[in-house]
Design a protein around this nucleic acid. Sequence first.
DNA 1: CCTATGTCAGCACGACTGATATTC
DNA 2: CGAATATCAGTCGTGCTGACATAG
Lengths: 154, 154
Amino acid sequence: MSENLLELAERYREILRQSVYLVRSMEVEGELSVAQVSILNMVVAGPLRVGRIAENAGIRVPSATEQIIKLESAGLVQRTADPSDARVVLVTLTDTGRGRLKAANARRSATMARALEALDAAEIQAVAAAIPALSKLNAALVGQSARTADTTTA
Amino acid sequence: MSENLLELAERYREILRQSVYLVRSMEVEGELSVAQVSILNMVVAGPLRVGRIAENAGIRVPSATEQIIKLESAGLVQRTADPSDARVVLVTLTDTGRGRLKAANARRSATMARALEALDAAEIQAVAAAIPALSKLNAALVGQSARTADTTTA
DNA sequence: CCTATGTCAGCACGACTGATATTC
DNA sequence: CGAATATCAGTCGTGCTGACATAG
């Protein structure tokens, strides 16, 4: 069994490797970057503190701060102090940000959907059926690596 | 149907977004990077020219050159002129490179396999069943973006 | 002379660590 | 005062474009 798992792991790793480059190649001049879309997608539901954004994104707080400042400069989010704790900065999506995010998401999803059209019904079904498992797999990987951050930082 | 495809596209994009960061977080100090492993994996089967490596990796030739030079400095590959065409540089894996690659692959696959163990049998089956479809999906994405490279680069 | 192949130079983006306010 | 939160400064990795050298 561990044998089969290892083989599956290798094959999925290869898929992932390709995907990393594909995601990069989906970037388009003048549009929001993947990093930016990721953050904006997080604050669609409501204001989030910087630390929480970093955690969700799988990056360190300073990296999140940097992106957020860029997004603020572009007028896509707003930074406000948390009234109950002045150390905390809450990031809120602006209307402009909402619009740009929607457009970026639409374009990216359309690109992906177009690629999905190259698959036959059974293959599409297979991808759809795997989504929950892949999501769980990602969660397991997060818990596993858990970065050195937790123990190292601060 | 296009509706369903769009929804599936969105969900898969989310998986992908997470994966990009997870791949990064799998990096370990002092070990080969993803970029390097990718290239080394290509030359396991035999010598490859720089242009071909770039193409396989989904990067531009200068980027490939840079990585390859680093790998050569580290003694993991060797660059030799193609006897039949002196413009061509052939990249060959050294024994050292083979060893280091094997170790890196083993560690990464083990990490992935450990995460897969968090899944139940049905979920593992779902992932395994989706692999060919995902592979095809990646291929479709490659063909689609096709980068501006082809027409732009001299 | 024109094309193909690869390399060099310089740049952009996005992550990281370490150090520093500010607030609790 | 120590811990938590965010930011600033400086660095690194890895990609890109444009210019260039060499070979076909």
